[in-house]
């Protein structure tokens, strides 16, 4: 039995349930719904962790080697990031949009053709382990758990994506809330979200995590490229799009300290940034090679 796919099915259901619970909490505002939603989000996190762990056991390498596996990492990081944010700031109504994103992500992973979900051995270009780590782990016979630049690069980049995903959700809520705050008639659903100023601040906090992690991801990718192929930057579409994404979020950070660019315009930039993340993650793999295919 392919255990990672069993846990995937569990997790998919758990995320749908969590989204429904946060939706119920947002609409009905009952505390017990909120508590159950948070608890369910935890269950989903544990289940997602099990996907990654079992996949690592099945494949013999770190569980982020293809699109499906990395989606699981993305869902895991976003879930963990959200729970930390909920714990620190206690704003449960935000949960609905983050969990809706998670459900969409799980659905996309579900719809991928089987060849993305199967367990495959790594091709030569993707094999890399840090010497110091294999040496250290070999004292307990655990060398096969050593990782290298590739795993580090993928992991840090996805922490970045998770931060950007949460910020994307918060920016949308910000635009909705900001518009409603200018009106005198207040929609009670929108009222239950935190004030626009808070949403703006939280969105910034999410990017304050995402941006440096993306930078570490880009740099570690460059280190790996230099080590494997002799050049740390070759302007290929994947690298270039990661830089485009980084430029957009750098613009966001500078917008927040520029008069007239805080608030709404910053939120738009955050949304554009996440659109770039989606293209970087999925678009480059599916859309861009298509252009090359027409040529040959």
């Amino acid at each position: 039995m392919i255990l990672s796919l069993v846990f995937f099915t569990f997790s998919f259901v758990f995320y749908i349930l969590t989204t429904a619970l946060y939706l119920g909490y947002w609409v009905f505002k009952k505390k017990w719904l909120g508590q159950t939603a948070t608890a369910m989000a935890f269950v989903a996190l544990v289940s997602t962790s099990m996907i990654l762990i079992s996949r690592a056991g099945e494949s013999g390498h770190a569980p982020f080697s293809n699109l499906w596996e990395s989606m699981m990492l993305f869902v895991w990081a976003t879930n963990a990031g959200y729970l930390i944010m909920e714990y620190k700031h206690k704003f449960r109504t935000i949960g609905i949009i983050v969990m809706a994103l998670e459900s969409i992500a799980m659905l996309s992973a579900l719809l991928l053709p089987y060849r993305f979900k199967s367990v495959e051995p790594l091709n030569p270009a993707l094999q890399n382990k840090w010497h110091w780590m294999t040496d250290l782990l070999s004292t307990w016979g655990l060398e096969k758990y050593a990782i290298g630049w590739l795993d580090f690069h993928v992991f840090t980049t996805f922490i970045g994506y998770a931060g950007f995903a949460i910020s994307f959700g918060l920016s949308i809520l910000y635009l909705v809330k900001e518009k409603s705050e200018t009106k005198t008639q207040r929609n009670s659903l929108v009222e239950s979200f935190p004030p626009a100023k808070t949403l703006d601040e939280l969105s910034y906090r999410a990017i304050a995590w995402g941006f440096p992690f993306l930078a570490v991801g880009i740099v570690s990718g460059a280190v790996w490229a230099n080590y494997a192929w002799g050049t740390y930057w070759s302007w290929d579409p994947k690298e270039t799009w990661s830089l485009i994404t980084w430029f957009i979020y750098a613009a966001y950070l500078h917008a927040r300290v520029t008069r007239g660019w805080r608030g709404k315009r910053a939120a738009y930039i955050s949304i554009a940034g996440f659109a770039a993340v989606i293209f970087l993650y999925w678009g480059v793999s599916f859309v861009l090679p298509g252009l090359h295919a027409y040529a040959s």
Binding site: K31, W32, G34, Q35, T36, A39, M40, V43
Partner: peptide, 11 residues
């Protein structure tokens, strides 16, 4: 809200 025990049971 719910006591922790009830929450655990539901989950």
């Amino acid at each position: 809200g719910l006591p922790k025990a009830a929450l655990a049971v539901i989950i």
